[in-house]
């Protein structure tokens, strides 16, 4: 439920990728980690997930700071990463424990909530990119993770599927109130989904700004307020001036 990072940093072979990262997430909050590529967004996410244990500093999940994979954490990767030998239903039940029947009932519920009912017995090779990513989302959500980590989950999708799945994520979030950490390089996505956007900058990456977005959901994509925020973020990333390329 609660997630806290204290001075988290990560060094790869003597080169610091990211340092001094501290923030905490309230239960049910959606936090966006935004930054240009190479500033360590995914590194932080992997540290939170426990897939990477060689980081410095402390990450506490519900007060537990041990560096391990917590079973209350779910991860949605940039690619679907479905197991190709399992069909949709089996992929979704993959992380569940318990009786087969109960698992399937639960999985079907989630498959329906990602709009894939009727496709339970298709294999990953028969799915389009968007469908596969929906399965991945269902697979991560079915275990009801209290903390959901998303690593650019929609970046490989076309604009329409992306919007659909963003709304889907919000729907699911509304129902299950997970704490979400979303890594993205898409400013519009961050503004549309997040309660707070943390901007990382530099190499090694550090927290540059922490922007609270108070606008109520459902938010209008491309509203004036959003546009103003977007300009602000672009400026803080030095991306709004052509001169930044040469400097």
């Amino acid at each position: 439920m609660s997630l806290e990072l204290h001075n988290v940093g990560r060094t790869f072979k003597g080169k610091t990728a990211v340092q001094n990262i501290s923030f905490s997430a309230k239960p049910g909050e959606i936090i966006g980690l935004l930054g240009t590529s190479g500033c360590g967004k995914s590194t932080i996410l992997r540290a939170i997930s426990g897939l990477d244990t060689d980081y410095d500093g402390d990450i506490s999940i519900n007060g537990n700071t041990s560096k391990e994979i917590h079973d209350t954490t779910g991860f949605i990767f940039q690619e679907p990463r479905l197991l190709p030998w399992l069909d949709v239903l089996e992929n979704v039940t993959f992380g569940l424990k318990g009786k087969k029947q109960e698992k399937e009932v639960l999985a079907k519920e989630y498959i329906e909530s990602v709009g894939l009912q009727g496709n339970e017995h298709l294999y990953p090779r028969e799915l389009s990119g968007g469908m596969a990513q929906r399965v991945a989302i269902a697979r991560a959500l079915v275990t009801s993770p209290e903390i959901l980590l998303l690593d650019e989950p929609f970046s490989a999708l076309d604009a329409f599927t992306k919007m659909q799945l963003q709304d889907l994520l919000l729907d699911v979030w509304k129902t299950y109130q997970s704490t979400i950490v979303l890594v993205t390089h898409d400013i519009d996505e961050a503004l549309y989904l997040c309660d707070r956007v943390i901007i990382l900058r530099g190499q090694p990456g550090e927290i540059d700004r922490d922007i609270l977005i108070e606008e109520k959901r459902p938010r209008a994509r491309g509203s004036e307020k959003m546009a103003a925020l977007k300009t602000e973020i672009l400026e803080s990333l030095d991306l709004n001036k052509p001169s930044s390329i040469t400097s």
């Binding site: 997930s49 897939l51 994979i69 079973d71 954490t73 779910g74 991860f75 990767f77 690619e79 990463r81 197991l83 993959f94 992380g95 275990t143």
Partner: peptide, 10 residues
């Protein structure tokens, strides 16, 4: 990548 999926599920 798929080994990591397995690890994520403990």
């Amino acid at each position: 990548k798929i080994i990591e999926v397995g690890k994520m599920y403990g």
